[in-house]
Design a protein around this nucleic acid. Structure first.
Length: 183
DNA sequence: GCGACAG
DNA sequence: ATCTTGTCGC
């Protein structure tokens, strides 16, 4: 499953979406959307307080039990080692993985140019995530565990769920749904 | 103190 | 993230 939130700046509303996919063919099995007023502003490090509320709402509408939830943002690769994916996972008691398009924390080196190439992201001498190349020659993504998933498993799952595009299919699907709901 | 800083 | 038109490429 993938989750994402789209905003309508002009009307101050947030549209959360969740999409459950079948790993066999990446088809969308179930999806749902929910909207709410965006209460909390975007503050780096406090991202969860902005998006978790509407995401919890939309997940209440999903009846399929997901194996893992991919979130737009970070997991433990966070200043307080507790990003959006950690909040959502602990709150719902579900395995979660953070998938960010840009780095926020940690030290890392540029991964190779081939699909699947990755470099560990270190924080205080610990590996908190991976910079993962999902498409050859394309900007890599930043993967870190949210809840109940190891660093290596998180990277492997995300790579497996990104067969064709830079971002994993579940997140692409959720992003699409949230934007449709936003109008 | 200064700079960096997911979406 | 959002606001926006066209444009280059498979």
């Amino acid at each position: 499953m993938g989750v994402d939130v789209a905003y309508r700046l002009s009307s101050d509303r947030a549209f959360g979406a969740a999409a459950v996919l079948d790993v066999a063919d990446f088809s969308v099995v179930e999806s749902a959307v929910a909207d709410a007023n965006s209460e909390f502003p975007y503050v780096p490090g406090l991202f969860a307080f902005r998006e978790v509320p509407v995401l919890v709402e939309v997940l209440r509408k999903i009846s399929t039990a997901p194996d893992v939830v991919l979130c737009d943002g970070n997991g433990i690769a966070h200043p307080r080692s507790f990003g959006l994916a950690c909040h959502l996972g602990l709150l719902l008691d579900l395995p979660t993985i953070g998938v960010a398009k840009n780095p926020m924390m940690g030290e890392y080196s540029e991964p190779g140019q081939n699909r699947g190439d990755r470099s560990p992201v270190h924080m205080n001498g610990r590996v908190v995530g991976y910079v993962l190349r999902t498409r050859p020659g394309v900007k890599p993504i930043f993967v870190s565990p949210g809840h109940k998933v190891s660093v290596d498993t998180a990277a492997q799952i995300v790579l497996d769920l990104s067969p064709r595009y830079r971002l994993p299919e579940p997140i692409r699907a959720a992003d699409h749904e949230s934007k449709l709901a936003r109008g």
